[in-house]
Amino acid sequence: MSAPSQASPSNAVAMGEACQSCAVFRAARLRKLGVRMGQADFVVALAGNPNTGKSTVFNALTGLRQHTGNWPGKTVTRAEGAFEYNGRRYKLVDLPGTYSLLSTSPDEQVARDFLLFAQPDVTVIVTDATRLERNLNLVLQVLEVTDRAVVCVNLMDEAERHGLQVDTRQLARDLGVPVVGTAARRGRGLPELLQAIEDVATGRVRCLPHRLPEPPPPLREAVRVLVDKLERIYPGLPNARWVAMRLLAGDESILNAIRTGTIAELAAARFSGQASPQTATS
């Protein structure tokens, strides 16, 4: 695994005076732009289970004051904001919370379609430190479809309150992507998160994301055949392998997308701010 462990922001441990003099911490570097976007250098998607503090992270980075309630499933519209860090502009898209990319509720389809077809430069997956096992479900699925991701283990203060200890370095080693521990409500861990986003976006850190073990031979064959066909019919379709697996699983929404031709549109529409990530394949 290259770079992540050396440059891993999760190396930085306690906050303190040292931080004030550290370049990473200086607030001047982070300019919260709210919704003033203009041309962004990078597009960052914010994904994660509901009620993990995604919107708090979003607000902290963009300076927007989207109301965040203690109620699962609160983000019912997709929010976009922007921030500038180290002279580069980032567009941040807060996707609705989703438990899995494999299910079919409209919220989850919005998130899924964006991640799969809009191909953001960095995907930040926000997880709840107190519910890591369940949250990793989504993390692992996202790592199947992108290789530029950062895992944000949020609510570390809650974990401490419950007596849990999360070893973010070990997680980073196992997952193959930068893992940053944060307590967004208190502003902890955000400089490291920003640094990790920058590292992945600029390619300074190259992730080797954990991928699920290879499927058994008959399945591999089926996937290969379908991927061939898909790439011929829809050249440039991102994540063709994932689409093939879903076809084999009989995923209704993907089948529909192919039957109605929506998938062709999604394949062609790169997210440049014009294509609306709200198109759900249904």
Partner: peptide
């Protein structure tokens, strides 16, 4: 993965 990284009281 979680078993390797998270310790519970």
């Amino acid at each position: 993965i979680v078993a390797r990284a998270v310790s519970t009281p």
